[in-house]
């Protein structure tokens, strides 16, 4: 019965978010295709006379090899942490209703993570195919470390996901759930800015900006140099992040019922967010 419950919850979750997910993946594919068209045009099309033998083509090939993979990974990660299903549940009152169903918070949380794994699996497969195709097309060897590079990108996105999930677990209102993504991005941007300031000001790293090709190669070299640390760390994150996220989600489901909001939400400045069914009567 437990398995049946999880199965049906997965089906329900996927049914709600599949349209948004697939349309986002399609948008991502269109974006990547756009770069591929430019790349092909540089080799064989109208841009070939100018770029066919140029260094820019090599740089652009590198860009396609790494960046499109990172982009697909990013889109997948973004969609995996998509709050629309959660918000839809709250707005449709399913969140409240689910408390009267014979399912535990843990079962609901498992179903959400299964859907996320499906999204990740699809994203990872597309990333890998994109990597293999671009490696072949650009004459760059597709090695095992490339797969670990992808895995590291995914691990990073899972950490983002985990932070987001923590903010969700703290949220008690539709407004707070909507704000969770902004908070997560804010924390990450803050950390990146602190790191950049540290590198630029404290360490005084004011070197000239390298070419894209050099930057990508240097990134790859750094990855290979530190792979003894990065690979185990990636594996740990890939296992621990979903487990911790699952716990936060279960916690969120366990505690979200304790919502007490103003029946008449106060008017305040908002960034165009639609007012949800915030009001709850006592």
């Amino acid at each position: 019965m437990t398995l049946n419950k999880i199965k049906i919850l997965v089906w329900r979750e996927w049914r709600i978010c599949r349209k948004t997910y697939l349309s986002s993946m399609f948008s991502g594919a269109v974006l990547v295709s756009f770069f591929w068209l430019i790349r092909l045009s540089m080799s064989y099309g109208n841009l070939a006379p100018v770029f066919a033998e140029s260094e820019l083509l090599a740089e652009f090939s590198g860009l396609l090899y790494y960046m499109s993979a990172a982009m697909v990974a990013g889109i997948t990660a973004g969609m995996s942490a998509d709050p629309s299903a959660l918000l839809a549940d709250v707005r449709a009152n399913w969140m409240r209703y689910s408390f009267v169903l014979p399912v535990s918070p843990a079962q609901r949380s498992v179903s959400i993570y299964i859907v996320r794994f499906i999204k990740y699996a699809i994203g990872f497969a597309i990333t890998a195919v994109n990597g293999i195709v671009s490696a072949k097309a650009n004459g760059i060897p597709f090695t095992g470390d490339m797969m670990w590079f992808f895995a590291a990108v995914y691990a990073a996105t899972m950490l983002y996901n985990l932070l987001l999930q923590w903010f969700y677990s703290q949220a008690r209102t539709v407004r707070q759930i909507s704000a969770a993504q902004g908070k997560t991005m804010g924390v990450l941007t803050g950390l990146i800015m602190i790191y950049t300031c540290y590198k630029m000001i404290i360490q005084g790293n004011n070197n000239e900006v390298d070419s894209l090709d050099v930057m990508i190669n240097s990134l790859r070299e750094k990855f290979i140099t530190h792979e003894n640390i990065i690979i185990p760390l990636t594996v740990i994150v890939l296992i621990a992040a979903p487990l911790t996220g699952w716990y936060f989600t279960a916690l969120h489901y366990r505690t979200h019922g304790d919502v007490k909001e103003d029946s008449q939400p106060k008017k305040r400045f908002s960034f165009g967010l639609k007012k949800g069914k915030d009001g709850e009567t006592v």
Binding site: R15, I16, P102
Partner: peptide
Amino acid sequence: KERLAVVFDELPFHDIFNAKEMGKIFRGL
């Protein structure tokens, strides 16, 4: 919760589902 049922003032089901799909969901639960 296996043995009770609750009816709220507002329908707690998503607009995208139909009655047949709701039956499928509850059958599993």
